[in-house]
């Protein structure tokens, strides 16, 4: 019997998935080698375009079970059936460049292909249950989550909130990986020096802030959801969202909703409906510009 050469594969766990990867992903928590693999990440050739895309934008194409994302100067990424990601990297790109898109948009795409509800936001844990801070890019999710983390609430995930139903049909949120991504203005607010922190990409000032404590990758009940947006008011405003409106607002917060294909929608919307029944949800208008973060976080914590 011939034994073929097999490339070394790293093993990780994130968002309830066991990931085997040809590319080292030091941000992720390691997994035991005995567990069965859900997602494989390989280096290989990726087509320039898909044959029959159902949805597309300037730099992505999606069809049932297939997602192609192109990042000029970095590489092309192809996710298939929620089980594989192939990375076709451009020469001269760095590992950080690849990892940023791999662990963000591509992992989000894979979770959606698997029918896992993926919301755009960060999650921390509290004694009452997990708390999600959702919102569009630039709304202040990571900054708020980091401030909560500094108050002693442990990080569950940053930027991506993955929710799936357990065997009893109850929605549960899963841990991501122990890292925040913060822009220098937020670093300054937390008195974190940029010098010691890795840029998320060499061309960006945004830094990777490792979370020094281990994060638990297990399932948690999500109890509170805050949807952040910026406003020009002087004070922050909180408004509780009631009833079915919660489901509509959660739908708006789906991560990369443009990737969500029809066949995955059933499971995602089922999870969404179940989640709507479990959470208290608040719409939060955060003053634009400098805010007193302490007071803002007090207001959030008082609603846990």
């Amino acid at each position: 019997m011939l034994i073929g050469w097999r490339r070394f594969m790293w093993r990780y766990r994130a968002y309830s998935l066991i990931i085997e990867s040809e590319i080292e992903l030091p941000e992720l928590s390691p997994a035991e080698s005995s567990e069965s693999v859900d997602l494989t990440i390989r280096i290989g050739e990726v087509p320039v375009v898909l044959q029959d895309p159902v949805a597309e934008g300037a730099r992505f194409q999606a069809a049932p079970g297939v997602l192609l994302v192109v990042v000029d100067g970095v590489g092309r990424f192809l996710a298939r059936d929620g089980e594989t990601i192939i990375v076709d990297r451009e020469s001269g790109t760095t590992d950080s460049d690849i990892r940023l898109f791999l662990l963000g948009t591509m992992l989000g795409g894979v979770l959606q292909q698997r029918g896992i509800l993926t919301l755009h936001g960060s999650v921390v844990d509290s004694p009452q249950g997990a708390v999600a801070i959702l919102g569009h890019s630039g709304a202040g999710k990571s900054t708020t989550a980091y401030a909560l983390h500094e108050r002693g609430f442990s990080l569950v995930s940053d930027d991506l909130c993955a929710v799936r139903l357990n065997d009893a049909g109850e929605p549960r949120v899963f841990g991501g990986y122990p890292q925040f991504k913060l822009w220098p203005d937020s670093l300054a607010a937390f008195e974190l020096g940029e010098g010691d922190l890795r840029r998320v990409r060499p061309v960006l000032e945004k830094r990777a802030v490792p979370c020094l404590e281990e994060i638990s990758t297990g399932a948690r009940r999500l109890k509170r959801v805050f949807v952040l947006s910026e406003s020009n008011s002087v004070e922050s405003q909180f408004r509780e969202i009631q009833g079915f409106a919660k489901i509509d607002r959660l739908k708006e917060q789906i991560y990369r909703r443009q990737f969500l294909m029809k066949e995955a929608q059933g499971k995602v919307f089922e999870t969404l409906a179940a989640l709507g029944g479990e959470i208290r949800m608040y719409e939060v208008l955060r003053p634009r510009g400098d805010i007193v973060l302490e007071r803002f976080v007090d207001e959030i914590v008082s609603r846990f």
Binding site: G57, A58, R59, F60, V71, G104, T105, S137, R256
Partner: peptide
């Protein structure tokens, strides 16, 4: 962000401006 499939904030200003005409065309 919707057009790119990833966050425009994950690109430098110069990188983003390279894809901008195609984003508008899309």
């Amino acid at each position: 962000d919707r057009e790119l499939g990833y966050e425009s904030g994950d690109l430098s200003f110069e990188e983003l401006e390279r894809v901008l005409p195609e984003a508008f065309a899309s």
